[in-house]
Amino acid sequence: MRILIVDDSKTSRLLFRAYMPKGEQHQVFEAANLPDALGSLQETQPELVVLDYNMPEHNGVEIAQAILQAGFKPKMALLTANTQKMVVDAAMAAGFLQVLEKPVNAEKIAALLEQAA
């Protein structure tokens, strides 16, 4: 599966990669903000986009809306430690598959990939 992770934090992107299942055929691409994400979507056509919620210029839900408006239709998951109802409701309304609670671990990522497959 081709996966795009959109997070302003390099650390968070590294940790996501680190906990990806080993030995499986997945390609992970990275973007730090909305313009990078749109560029990467065009180039890599990912099946799954994982978005951080709390980012400086646009939050993850806003980026998801921009992705859909640009005509892309990937499956999406929101990555956040801010799991209050407001955030989860906004994610569900925007069509996210799942809200993945930070910090991530191998089990959470495996469950997400299974759901997205």
């Binding site: 968070s12 956040t80 430690a81 209050q84 910090p103």
Partner: peptide, 15 residues
């Protein structure tokens, strides 16, 4: 990494 640590901790506090 420190920012990410703060982000996760403080987001949990907001929740």
């Amino acid at each position: 990494a420190l920012c990410e640590l703060a982000n996760v901790g403080l987001s949990r506090a907001a929740t």
